[in-house]
């Protein structure tokens, strides 16, 4: 047992401050245990939400040393013994009291997202689906609604003005889940996500994926596929750029396509187009490497300023000409 230093935000909608506390910490405890000990021994009216204390209900979301975390899943052993642990409420939502915030934004957005539409003429008990088909939606149904993704998303974090038009990652995966549901009768889930849920605001920085305690691949498996498939009918500058670089949909369909094409090795072209291979595999941009068990601050997730290189972060310049996709127009 040791006594450690904590800073816990106390206050309400009108303001507050970080209070200093010294609290006993035992081996194997998590931050929520410390909050409970604070309540039982020093601050009986310290407000905090929690339920299952096993990472399954998503109630005890808060920011711990600036990172959006479930406090029941944040072990004290991940901090240095002499490190002061700072606990603050979720920043994106209005504070009610202490560590409790008003998350009704999320419930409003849930209500605006069109519900599952049962298929006509299929009686209960007659639903037939393949496991492989339901698994895609099941990934998103793992969501425990802790709203850490909503909290960390920079579209609404510190941008109150965007909240009206933006549903947030939690509801993009809901839209994707219904879109991929084998028997959902509504066919415009993607279009709706774009036109009414603010999908276009998302510029795929992947912060939501980073903080998801259920490890749902929010960006890769829900947001990007929806953005790409919706773009046939709508203009999204990010997807436009993405398609200039690589056609993901074609990549999926033409798995056998040549993956690299070297200068000096022209391939026959069916319609006289340049033999440039846009399907060349480009390494995906990587998030900054975490130190120890700690995740990096999501605002400074990338290891460089500005956007990731469209050519992939692994590529060094100048590039070896032999690996380039270059086609000389004068050459046959």
């Amino acid at each position: 047992m040791t006594v450690r230093n904590f800073k816990v935000w106390r206050g309400d909608g009108s303001g507050g401050q970080l209070n200093d506390y010294q609290v006993e910490v035992n081996e194997g405890e998590v931050v929520l245990d410390i909050i409970h000990r604070l309540q039982a021994t020093q601050e009986p009216d310290l407000a905090c939400r929690w339920n299952c204390k096993a990472g399954k209900c998503g109630s005890c979301s808060m920011e711990i040393n600036g990172m959006p975390r479930l406090s029941c899943m944040t072990r004290m052993s991940t901090f240095e013994e002499d490190e002061t642990v700072t606990v603050t409420p979720l920043r994106t939502f209005p504070v009610i009291r202490d560590l409790v915030t008003d998350v009704s934004f999320n419930y409003e957005k849930a209500r605006e997202t069109p519900a599952f539409a049962p298929p006509a003429g299929v009686a209960p008990g007659e639903y037939r689906m393949k496991q492989v088909d339901v698994e895609r939606s099941q990934e998103f149904r793992k969501c425990i609604e802790c709203y850490l993704c909503q909290n960390t998303c920079h579209v609404v974090r510190d941008h109150e003005e965007n909240k009206k038009a933006f549903a947030g990652p939690r509801f993009f995966i809901r839209a994707a889940e219904l879109d991929m549901h084998p028997l959902d009768a509504k066919t415009d889930r993607k279009e709706y996500a774009q036109s009414a849920m603010g999908l276009g605001f998302c510029n795929i920085t992947k912060c939501c994926t980073e903080v998801c305690p259920e490890h749902i691949k929010i960006t890769d498996n829900a947001i990007i596929p929806m953005k790409e498939r919706v773009v046939d009918r709508r203009y999204d500058p990010l997807v436009w750029l993405g398609r200039k670089i690589m056609r993901r949909d074609e990549l999926e369909q033409e798995a056998v396509a040549v993956t690299t094409l070297h200068a000096g090795e022209p391939t026959p072209q069916p319609d006289g187009a340049a033999p440039i291979n846009w399907h060349r595999e480009i390494p995906a941009p990587q998030a900054a490497v975490a130190e120890g068990d700690k995740l990096p601050l999501n605002e400074v997730l990338s290891d460089r300023t500005g956007a990731s290189s469209p050519f992939g972060d692994e590529i060094e310049f100048p590039v070896d000409p032999a690996t380039l996709n270059y086609y000389h127009p004068d050459r046959d």
């Binding site: 519900a115 599952f116 209960p124 639903y127 037939r128 689906m129 393949k130 496991q131 959902d184």
Partner: peptide, 24 residues
């Protein structure tokens, strides 16, 4: 109980499946 479970599918539930596509 079976009717109550089947009803959940009409609400959008996605249970694990058997090979022939029924609820596992």
């Amino acid at each position: 109980a079976p009717d109550r479970i089947w009803e959940l599918e009409t609400y959008g539930a996605l249970f694990d499946r058997t090979k022939d596509g029924k609820i596992s």
